[in-house]
């Protein structure tokens, strides 16, 4: 199996605080890998380092066998950043936001028919085709997350990288997302995602990498529900419609 992501001894700092302290992370083609860990364990930093948004202070990173600084083939990657609630103020429709993802293929050129089709297809995959002309401000948290995932899928990626795709997402959207992801995985897409808990995605996960204080403390089969809940500092984000936005923090950290 060829290696899609290879991170070796990665260290990174935010300000002067070390956030990654020698992280090894390998993702092979077709794998679904979950990055788990408490808040502040470095999992989001690790995933942002993989897409080149956090510079590594030492260590190496290769994407599809190419060192990050020489990697140009971004159309092979679909990226779903952590959802921010801040609206930009200027209105934008669901379709306009999803089309932005396709720019990884069109770059500075004009979109062709195939590009428009890919955008419509991505909207259908997340069940948002009927909302394509609606402004994104009118969406719920879960629907917004589905839009961001459609934006990543519009490029028809080989590797999907997602930062907490299930955070603050209502149960209905979680099920849609799990279904979408299952379909992508069955088509051979490689997935690396940050999760707070395995939740409805559990059956899809091949391997879990658990971080604590910027170090890998577990790399292997996903911990069973009990073990996963027993992780120190674990946050419970329960997808009940009413108070999904407010995680109940029971962790020690």
């Amino acid at each position: 199996m060829d290696t899609v992501i290879s991170m070796r001894g990665a260290t990174a700092t935010l300000g002067s605080r070390p956030v990654l302290r020698g992280v090894d992370l390998t993702v092979r083609r077709g794998e679904v890998v979950a990055l788990l860990g408490a808040n502040g364990s470095g999992k989001s930093t690790a995933i942002r380092a993989v897409v080149g948004q956090v510079p590594l202070t030492s260590g190496g990173l290769e994407l599809f066998g190419t060192p990050l600084n020489r990697f140009r083939d971004w159309a092979r990657i679909g990226y779903v950043p952590q959802r921010t609630t801040a609206a930009s103020g200027v209105p934008a429709t669901v379709r306009e936001v999803v089309s932005a993802g396709r720019l990884a293929r069109t770059k500075l050129g004009l979109p062709r028919k195939a590009d428009r089709r890919a955008v419509e297809h991505a909207l259908e995959l997340v069940g948002m085709a009927d909302r394509a002309a609606d402004p994104v401000e009118a969406l719920s948290g879960g629907q917004h997350q589905r839009v961001l995932i459609a934006r990543a899928l519009s490029v028809e990626p080989e590797l999907l990288i997602m930062d907490e795709p299930m955070a603050g997402v209502d149960l209905a959207s979680q099920e849609v997302l799990a279904g979408t992801l299952r379909e992508q995985v069955s088509l051979g897409t490689t997935v690396l995602l940050v999760l707070h808990e395995l939740g409805p995605l559990e059956p899809l996960i091949d391997r879990a990498v658990v971080l604590r204080d910027g170090c890998v403390v577990h790399d292997g089969p996903p911990p069973k529900a009990q073990g996963q809940h027993a992780l120190p500092g674990h946050d419970h984000v329960h997808p009940h419609a009413g108070h999904a936005a407010e995680p109940i923090r029971t962790g020690l950290f």
Binding site: I77, P81, A92, A100, A104
Partner: peptide, 20 residues
């Protein structure tokens, strides 16, 4: 360049990862 400028202005981090 409206599509590209829209993407960059809307979500700079995402635009970087699309390789723009």
């Amino acid at each position: 360049l409206r599509r590209q400028l829209f993407a960059v202005s809307q979500d700079e981090e995402f635009a970087q990862v699309t390789g723009l």
